[in-house]
Design a protein around this nucleic acid. Structure first.
Length: 667
DNA sequence: GTTTAATTAAACAGGT
DNA sequence: CACCTGTTTAATTAAA
């Protein structure tokens, strides 16, 4: 009936929903970019310093300087490669390195932690996350540095040529040779580093550069089979303006290179350029460009894998490479469509980069602020609320909460690793690290709204979120549907399927209570129940995870990080509803994490850190206008769950939540 | 290898 | 009758 039409309408409306555009907020990758630049600057300064000292001939000076720089770079790379295991002593030896790699230094909090110590202190997952962050930064620096080196090489060559007239040719030759060798070495290191990154899934779309072994990995890991939908249809054009906002500016240059550099084979080759991204984003990806140019893997193609074309949304089967190439040239030639698709890909990449940069920056700031105080368990044993701490293991805690250090014993498993191709780390990634839906959404809702990517949350958590976002914490089925379509591009398709799932979830979970209203029935959330059944899984659905992983894992990653911060910081998403004093109660108890709080594991010692908000007030249902008793019944089984007593129901996990106050709405 | 939870599909009952 | 809303059951799958 009307409903239908209503939902349909909305369906197409999403883009117009709101112009808030968190994206724009996120987009300002400027910060990160700046950081990167600054780092680079520092490096240069160091070099400059060396310059001033010397009194050697220009050529020697250059040489010396380069040597030094190379050394540093090499060392740094090695360090990275070995997982921070390289001894810190080296650092002292090479004071220059300190300058050269300010970022890393800062991150490690020189204050005395040697890499090894860090390793001990931090859980694997933490390390992993850290490492990734560092690597990303590193890459940027390296990139710059590398460029610089090349320039210098040229310079040097020129100089030497001039001077050559007075010096024996041989000497020069040797020098040049040596230098070139170093450069080569450096290149190799760089490649190696890239490989590492690839393995970790940090760098996606890795193209040709890594001929053999890698090609499959990246493909599988990154090519989100679902991402394609992004392209299907109207792709780029369809993108709501808000989203494209600034992206528009970047055009095919920088990012294009990233997204499509591989499409270079024969003819189809978009204009690639070396320009750095406009916004200063580093581009993890770009770097590979250099190296990729070296070798053109003969037997494979980045866009070809498992017998099919990996062009977004294509999936055409091709027997062999030859056929594929032909297909590529005919189907994906340089035309409007391809360009549009390319643009979309660019946006995806861009967003990922921005996100990465942002997170990196944040991490640095966090570490700087905390002096990298490790979440060491023992030392600071303080309150231990732990039980629930959803912190993704690794992060430093949010300043706000008193939450104490995470228990060390925790199964290591964080997520970052698990995020990317499920590889090895699939262990418990989920649980602990699931992110609070609210924060995740808050951060990426623009993204989900526009990208056809399945959100990494379960239907139950999404439904709950939808309901809680409203002022009265109640929604009709149809409104729930609308929320889904409004908030997620993904749910604008296959409506029959997910709607059925929604209904199914509403009926299935006790936490959703149907209340008969004058006008019909509305659904509310019984937080208590919800929390109860919590040992959730982060993921929503298998597919979900898959998508997330493959495509835009950043959301999750970030989510994990955010989880830590969530509590305090995101005003963003929560419902306007919260404001509502009257009904607000429900929110409190909810620990935002919906998706995943780990509830169970630890004995919650609520004692130490009393969750600030006593969960007792289980939100009860919001005051629904006339509400039949049905709901009530379930709700309180018997003993009113002890409010104060966290251990009862669940971990008090609600560790503080104050989940944020209401902020605005997400869309 | 078993259990649990989520997803998906589908049947079915009331209502409109 | 068609469609919506709810409830259920069942199969499948991934994670624990």
């Amino acid at each position: 009936m009307m409903v239908e039409s209503a939902s349909e309408t909305i369906r197409s409306a999403p883009s117009g929903q709101n112009g808030v555009g968190s994206l724009s907020g996120q987009a300002d990758g400027g910060g990160a970019g700046a950081a990167g630049t600054a780092a680079g600057g520092a490096g240069r300064d160091a070099a400059a310093g060396a310059d001033s000292n010397g009194e050697m001939s220009p050529a020697e000076l250059l040489h010396f300087q380069q040597q030094q720089a190379l050394q540093v770079a090499r060392q740094f790379l090695l360090q990275q490669a070995s997982g921070l295991s390289s001894p810190g002593n080296n650092d002292s030896k090479q004071s220059a390195s300190a300058v050269q790699v300010p970022v890393s230094v800062a991150m490690m909090s020189p204050q005395m932690l040697t890499p090894q110590q860090m390793q001990q202190i931090l859980s694997p997952p933490q390390l992993q996350a850290l490492l990734q962050q560092q690597q990303a930064l590193m890459l940027q620096q390296l990139q710059e540095y590398y460029k610089k080196q090349q320039e210098q090489l040229h310079l040097q060559l020129l100089t030497q040529q001039q001077a050559g007239k007075q010096q024996p040719k041989e000497a020069l030759g040797n020098k040049q040779l040596a230098f070139q060798q170093q450069l080569l070495q450096m290149q190799q290191l760089q490649q190696q580093h890239l490989l590492n990154l690839q393995r970790q899934g940090l760098v996606s779309l890795q193209p040709s550069q890594a001929s053999g072994p890698l090609q499959t990995l990246p493909q599988a890991a990154v090519c989100p089979s679902d991402l394609p939908q992004l392209w299907k249809g109207e792709s780029a054009p369809g993108q709501p303006a808000e989203d494209s906002v600034k992206q528009e500016g970047l055009d095919l240059t920088g990012t294009a290179a990233t997204a499509t550099s591989f499409a270079a084979p024969p003819k189809v080759s978009p204009p690639l350029s070396h320009h750095p991204l406009p916004n200063g984003q580093p581009t993890v990806l770009t770097s590979r460009r250099d190296s990729s140019s070296h070798e053109e893997t003969p037997g494979s193609h980045p866009l070809y894998g498992h017998g099919e074309c990996k062009w977004p949304g294509c999936e055409t089967l091709c027997e062999d490479l030859g056929q594929f190439i032909k297909h590529l040239n005919t189907e994906h030639a340089l035309d409007d469509r391809s360009t549009a698709q390319c643009r979309v890909q660019m946006q995806v990449v861009q967003q990922l980069e921005i996100q990465l940069a942002k997170e990196s920056e944040r991490l640095q700031a966090m570490m700087a602020h905390l002096h990298m105080r490790p979440s060491e368990p023992k030392p600071f044993s303080q309150p231990v609320t732990v039980s629930a701490d959803p912190f993704p293991d690794g992060l430093v805690h949010p300043p706000t909460s008193a939450a104490a250090p995470v228990t060390p014993l925790r199964p290591p498993g964080l997520g970052s690793a698990s995020l990317h191709s499920g590889g090895p780390a699939r262990r418990r990634s989920s649980d602990k690290f699931c992110s609070p839906i609210s924060s995740e959404l808050a951060q990426n809702h623009e993204f989900y709204k526009n990208a056809d990517v399945r959100p990494p949350f379960t239907y139950a958590s999404l439904i709950r979120q939808a309901i809680l976002e409203t002022p009265d914490r109640q929604l009709t089925l149809n409104e729930i549907y609308n929320w889904f379509t409004r908030m997620f591009a993904y749910f604008r398709r296959n409506t029959a399927t997910w709607k059925n799932a929604v209904r199914h979830n509403l009926s299935l979970h006790k936490c959703f209570v149907r209340v008969e209203n004058v006008k019909g029935a509305v659904w509310t959330v019984d937080e208590r129940e919800y929390q109860k059944r919590r040992p959730p899984k982060m993921t929503g659905s298998p597919t979900l995870v898959k998508n997330m992983i493959s495509g835009l894992s950043y959301g999750a990653l970030n989510a994990s990080y955010q989880a830590a911060l969530a509590e305090s910081s995101f005003p963003l998403l929560n419902s306007p509803g919260m404001l509502n004093p009257g009904s607000a109660s429900s929110l409190l108890p909810l620990s935002h994490d919906d998706v995943g709080a780990p509830v169970e594991p630890l004995p919650s010692n609520g004692s130490s850190s009393p969750p600030r908000l006593s969960p007792p007030q289980y939100s009860h249902q919001v005051q629904v206008k006339e509400e039949p008793a049905e709901a009530e019944e379930d709700r309180r089984p018997g003993p009113p769950l002890g409010p104060p007593n966290p251990s009862t129901v669940g971990p008090p996990e609600d560790r503080d939540l104050e989940e944020e106050l209401p902020g605005e709405e997400l869309s």
